[in-house]
Amino acid sequence: MTTAISADGIRKRYGDVQAVDGVSLTVETGEFFGLLGPNGAGKTTTLEILEGIREADEGRIELLGLAPWPRNPKLLPRIGVQFQASAFFDKLTARETIRTFASFYGVGARRADAWLDRVGLTDSAAVRTDKMSGGQAQRLSIACALVHDPELVFLDEPTTGLDPQARRNLWDLLRDINAEGRTVVLTTHYLDEAELLCDRVAVMDHGKVLQTGAPAALVRELDDTVRISVESGLIPIETARELLTAAGAEIAALEDNGVLLSLSTRAPAPVLSVLAEQGALRGLEVRGATLEDVFLHLTGREYRA
């Protein structure tokens, strides 16, 4: 496998703020890579430096073996960038928009229209971009980023503001794009999305990469407790405590809030067998740690504006 992105020790300072503070990343060809982090973590700046929009103060970057800064016309046709805010021309229809973007790469109208079809916008081809729904606009902007068949694609929060159907629809598209052999770099606030789509993720905060790895591996490393809950009233809370202690299950946070009887444990097996013996499994829910727990564990819970 060859390397699609290799960044080593990149730093960028804006005035007093060290936006990126020594980020090193490697993304292999064909990988689906997620860049995660709370607002202000330095994701956007890192992405902009990788794309070649901004110059890093320090560090070495190579995309597909080429330096992205200064603007490199040899590299540009091989990468595709989709923006957070849809960068569309005023007063153009979807078809005119994608054909215009295609023209920048010398790509003909037929191939542009094929992309419109691929993202399911053929029926909306004559709709002006400002009249399109959020999902349609996002799909168009992804199509515009892909119209020249790039090897490496950057997607910046592609599913923000979409309804659940549109999100799932877009996930299928993103998976297909990756399955065709393209390297995809994604930033997102939705950790379920990253967990589902990404081969590997990097969690960033304060301009640094805190951890990198496959989502499942990160979750496993977290060694978190499992949360178990059943319907309230199936078994008295005192009885439950006695039985579970007798069975040798180490439990915490046992409570009955009138709706659910819930508890946390690191050993779910004895807990579940006790509950099963008592016939108290109605409404059973077992939740393990998710990427979200990893994220919160790494970046803390305090609110960021």
Binding site: F83, A85, F88, D90, F101, F104
Partner: peptide
């Protein structure tokens, strides 16, 4: 101004235009 604000200039900069 419009193209800069709507990031179309950035898009153009990232295309071999």
């Amino acid at each position: 101004v419009n193209w800069r604000k709507k990031r179309i200039l950035r898009r153009l900069r990232l295309a071999p235009v």
